[in-house]
Design a protein around this nucleic acid. Sequence first.
DNA 1: CTTTGACACCTAGCATAACTAGGTATACCA
DNA 2: TGGTATACCTAGTTATGCTAGGTGTCAAAG
Lengths: 105, 105
Amino acid sequence: MVGEALKGHLDLLLLAVLADGPAHGYAVIEALRARSKGAFDLPEGTIYPALHRLEDQGLLKSTWSEDSARRKRIYQPTPKGQQALTTRQTEWKQFYKAINATVGI
Amino acid sequence: MVGEALKGHLDLLLLAVLADGPAHGYAVIEALRARSKGAFDLPEGTIYPALHRLEDQGLLKSTWSEDSARRKRIYQPTPKGQQALTTRQTEWKQFYKAINATVGI
DNA sequence: CTTTGACACCTAGCATAACTAGGTATACCA
DNA sequence: TGGTATACCTAGTTATGCTAGGTGTCAAAG
């Protein structure tokens, strides 16, 4: 994606993806690419620290999956994370409508 | 506004406001507040450096107004700035549609 | 006539978060 | 055996909005 545009909006994306079911980091990257039809093709160095940050904030919790030889850290939203998702959604709607109103589109 | 949400989108707002007519920095702040219905109430420390940056990039040019005892630096978009506005607009549309698609709203 | 607040400009330094660029390791296919 | 995809990690860079301070003009209120 382009530059700094994503700043402050990534949390919303991650919480939205994980609200539809637990997933590990690499799968989140693929889900973002798929859902956005290729617009969000984000590097691991973006996603992994963001997931850690959200877990530190208590919005996600993670467990190591054991049903595979390849280790996977499975993330899912906490109740606090689900609540955060709805507030982030309304904030996002207000934000993009404010932009559209300002730009006149 | 909230946190980092604006990062990467301020240039679009400034170019859009100034595309509707030259204005000085303080007036730009008021225009943003008015157009966004209060959503974008941005401090001078955000606007002035941003205007300087856009001028450095050749997207705006400025002149000091002389018809007032109070000095005002009047900004207006250059041709390059007008072109940048249209590309930023299409990028913004792609961006917010990608977010909405990803979030599912 | 002094003070307060709106107007109008400026910038050094801070904070945040996405990204770069490196690393480790497993699995599978040619 | 080598390459590619999967899957994780993090130190450091970078970009930019914002904080917090500064200067000065002007008008209205006290």
